[in-house]
Design a protein around this nucleic acid. Structure first.
Length: 848
RNA sequence: GCCCGGGUAGACAAACUGGCAAAGUCGGCGCUCUUAAAAAGCGCUGCCCGCAAGGGCCCUGCGGGUUCGAUCCCCGCCCCGGGUACCA
């Protein structure tokens, strides 16, 4: 009697060393341009279509400290998919890397004096150990880290390509400034007026900065969302962020000064209701307009106050509207009326033209302003049914077809939609307006006044101004500095030897750009580099990209729904326009996994003390158990709270499977044993309990497979395997061939979730390697039973169940149901109205 | 405010989007093995009546509707989570 038990650590170490020694998860490029380290097939060799490849990618980790349990979830999901795709005949690219530039390492350096590189590389080492101990199937030859010159050389190269095409540019504008981190931030990094990283209130500062012209791609970024298989809510978030608004630009003329002021409006149909006009405090003409009017002083005071407000104060929609009369009027182009001009901080310079026509009757904000300053409110839209609207308390905001235009001259009686079209057309003919589209999306601010990032490859020459560093001089390496403390300018500025350089154009003295790039630049193209990671001559060989791109399945957290996923899409489109690659979208399919919450149901955080570090769990239960548990917690796209007991349940499942394997196999052989390898063969003619097991095994194959091709409901897949294992314990008398088949199937199906244990048990029973076996296909004959339980209902309520042969005719089923005792009892005293028959399922007897 | 998700046993969840509500896991209760415990294995576990066999009624946040039949579709409401918020 064997006392052996499932020893996860032993098993996992053994298989991990096999995979490392044999390079099991490495995949070669087929393309001819051989590059060091990654073999390529010679040209003329078999070039199959791209259709057999599958690029499975999890978002690369930001290496800070030790990996946490959320990382494990991310990579457990991706690894399961990668394994499944390999075994369904795909060449799978499944690489790994590190997003290794960034603020936390730098802030740590400020605190401790340890170079960010040291802390980062320590963390990378911890991640590497973790990935190996978790048994993630990675092609390590393609590993990258964005802080290494080998990588950021090409980040700089891409910057220069964007610069050449006018997609990277410098401009002065009001930008978000975090006084705590002492750097500017992209719009996307400001959450509720606060810094995404440190939570400090963000200020607006007028600064000259580097931008990427992502707004040029607004339409394509929006339209192409329809072509990719992403969760609908992520697409919606991107659509809202891009914020396309269709409307018109209309000129309002200030006759006194003879200047036209265009405004953007989405409601040209309400033009007749425009009773005043408002400009943003930043509008360049505000002082000019007020000059010489009695309001000049008040305007200056108001503007100065508005400009010093924080982004949060300024953005508060709840606060009462304020503003000041500019002392001038403009002409409403359709009514000919002179309407007063105001400056007010609810109008934003960055959107539209920085000026608006105010229609207080039909816009909430204008309504609030009109009420505060007692301005006229003129109704120009009314309910079609003639009912009255009380405009004293709130605006009547509708574009629906149950409303019509009123007080709008020739346009009276039109629906808002029709009025929109007709008025814009009329404005166009008169030359005072035209159709216009506006976006909420702003250009991407990419420069940062921080140390630990990719240097911007630009120098400033007294003679030639801004000069790009020639491509053959890349990388511009990050210099060593003594002091990482940001002081409003980049710490790089203190590296005098580095800053002072020569102009590539004239050889004269020049200074380097000292800002570094936002780390989101690094992560906007890493998935391209994996394809050709060891290429020293170029960022990638376009032919290699043709082989692998786009990513067939991308997996990561929703927190990147806007930032990373939008920037990466922009990069790919821009690079495609330069003929450097030929896909339009980086990620054809996206899966967003949910968070693992602490046992208290709260987000894990050090301050809450509810963090579950993965390593002790791995040591105690093994990576397979933790991986299986994490995938079994619930739908993987949903958040779920940690539960130690449930983890031991997953461990129990694997242990039970291992026990079955060790009983049926000739004991553990070890992976290199030369046993009598037998294919997994379904017994030819199973019967009794054996037939039950064979059927269950086929049912499990079917269920697990459908989760992989469908919604990735791995908890359901694992439940199916659990049922199969439970049945193996329930029917110990089944014949040995059927049991072997069922255990081998269970191991085979478990392999993507628990690869070590899956491989071990599979090998014990068959002498073969699970990952070299094709994914099992269910035997259709075993998926259908020859009889089923016919549900018998009366008026939709279940009253009986009887066995019926599969494929029975309606008449047969009706007779069976009507004879069922439970039905007979409920028919007494009732009149039979009709019979509903669902073949192979149920009969419903409708009575009165 | 607006836009998405979501609400099913004590907990996490399933039900292939109109056909047996609750698979599977955890927890709880009981049993087997054991000197004992652990481990392992087995059984029970929505509510009410009944010692029980069994039966009845109820049950997917709440209220209505459509349907032979609703967790699923429609209308109204309540709660939770996320996104976004003066974008004209």
């Amino acid at each position: 009697m064997s006392e052996r038990r499932y020893e996860a650590r032993e098993i996992e170490a053994r298989w991990q060393s096999v995979w490392a020694q044999e390079g099991t998860w490495e995949v070669d490029n087929r393309t001819s341009q051989a590059t060091a380290g990654i073999r390529s097939h010679p040209p003329g060799g078999t070039t199959r279509a791209q259709s057999d490849k599958s690029y499975v990618l999890e978002m690369l980790p930001y290496p800070s400290g030790e990996p946490h349990i959320g990382h494990l979830k991310n990579y457990a999901i991706g690894d399961a998919i990668a394994h499944f795709r390999r075994r369904t005949g795909h060449r799978v690219l499944h690489p790994m890397g590190y997003d290794s530039f960034g603020l936390p390492a730098e802030n740590n350096a400020i605190k401790t004096g340890v170079h960010p590189r040291v802390a980062t590389e320590q963390s990378i080492a911890a991640f590497q150990r973790a990935f190996r101990s978790w048994g993630i199937s990675i092609d390590w030859r393609r590993e990258i880290a964005s802080h290494e010159p080998d990588y950021y050389r090409w980040t700089q190269w891409i910057f220069l390509q964007l610069y050449k095409r006018g997609l990277a540019y410098r401009k002065e504008s009001a930008v978000n400034w975090c006084p705590n981190d002492q750097t500017v931030l992209a719009n996307e990094q400001v959450i509720d007026g606060r810094c995404e990283r440190c939570g400090h209130e963000v200020e607006l500062r007028q600064l000259e900065q580097w931008f990427f012209r992502i707004t040029d791609y607004a339409d394509r970024l929006l339209d192409d969302l329809d072509r990719i298989d992403w969760p609908e809510h992520v697409k919606t978030m991107q659509r809202n962020w891009i914020g396309r608004s269709v409307g018109a630009e209309v000129n309002f003329r200030c006759a006194e000064l003879g200047i036209d002021y265009p405004v953007f409006t989405t409601r040209p149909d309400t033009l007749f209701g425009a009773t005043f006009f408002v400009m943003a405090p930043e509008h360049p003409d505000v002082f000019r307009l007020a000059a010489g009017t009695p309001n000049e002083q008040a305007v200056h005071q108001y503007v100065n106050h508005a400009l010093t407000e924080s982004a949060e104060e300024r953005g508060d929609a709840e606060k009462t509207k304020t503003g000041v009369f500019l002392g001038r009027t403009v002409t409403n182009p359709v009514t000919g009326e002179e309407i007063p001009m105001y400056v007010a901080d609810y109008v934003l310079m960055e959107y539209g033209t920085g000026a608006i026509m105010a229609v207080p009757a039909h816009d909430e904000r204008d309504h609030a302003f009109a009420r505060a300053y007692d301005l006229p409110i003129r109704q120009v839209v009314a309910p079609k049914d003639g009912s009255a609207v009380d405009l004293r308390t709130e605006a009547y905001v509708t574009k629906a077809d149950d409303a019509i235009l009123v007080n709008s001259g020739d346009f009276n009686g039109l629906t808002p939609k029709a009025g929109f079209e007709r008025i814009v057309h009329w404005l166009d003919l008169e030359g005072i307006g035209h159709p216009s589209v506006n976006f909420r999306l702003r250009d991407w601010l990419v420069s940062r006044q921080r140390y630990w990032g990719c240097p911007i490859p630009i120098v400033y020459c007294d003679e030639h101004g801004m000069v790009p560093v020639p491509e053959d001089q890349l990388p511009v390496t990050l210099p060593e500095v003594q002091d990482y403390q940001p002081r409003g300018r980049s710490p790089l500025a203190t590296a005098q030897d580095w800053v002072n350089t020569t102009c590539p154009r004239c050889g004269g003295p020049a200074r380097r750009e000292t800002d570094t790039m936002d780390t989101f630049v690094d992560s906007s193209w890493y998935f391209l580099r994996y394809c050709d990671a060891r290429n020293d001559d170029q960022a990638w060989d376009p032919a290699v990209l043709r082989e692998w791109m786009g990513v067939d399945q991308y997996i990561g957290g929703v927190e990147h729904a806007i930032l990373h996923l939008l920037y990466a899409r922009f990069f790919v489109k821009a690079l495609a326009d330069m003929d450097l690659l030929d896909v339009q979208e980086p990620f054809n399919a996206l899966f967003t996994q949910g968070m693992i919450l602490g046992p208290d149901g709260q987000k894990m955080s050090k301050s809450r003390g509810n963090v579950i570090p993965p390593t002790p769990l791995i040591e105690r239960f093994g990576a397979d158990s933790v991986r299986t548990y994490i995938l079994n917690m619930g739908p993987p796209d949903q958040d779920a709270a940690w539960n130690d007991n449930a983890l031991s349940g997953a461990h129990r499942l694997l242990s039970r499977l291992w026990t079955l394997g060790s009983e049926l196999g000739a004991g553990a052989r070890g992976p290199l044993a030369t046993g009598d390898a037998e294919a997994v063969i379904q017994p030819a003619d199973p019967s009794g309990d054996g037939l039950t097991l064979v059927r269950k095994a086929n049912w499990a194959i079917d269920r697990v497979t459908s989760e992989f091709v469908g919604r990735f409901g791995f908890h359901n897949a694992i439940a199916a395997v659990t049922e199969l294992v439970n049945d193996l314990y329930r029917y110990p008398q089944a014949d040995i061939e059927a049991r072997k088949f069922a255990v081998a199937t269970a191991a085979s199906l478990t392999f993507p979730f628990a690869p070590h244990l899956g491989a071990e048990v599979f090998e014990m029973v068959t002498g073969r390697r699970a990952w070299e076996e094709p994914w099992p296909a269910p035997d259709p004959a075993m998926l259908v039973a020859d009889s089923f339980e016919l549900v018998c209902q009366v008026n939709g309520k279940v009253r009986d169940r009887v066995r019926a042969p599969s494929g029975s005719s309606r008449e047969q089923l009706e007779q069976l149901a009507l004879a069922a005792p439970g039905i007979v009892a409920h028919l007494e005293g009732h009149e039979l109205v009709k019979l509903i028959v669902v073949p192979d399922k149920l009969v419903n007897v409708v009575v009165r």
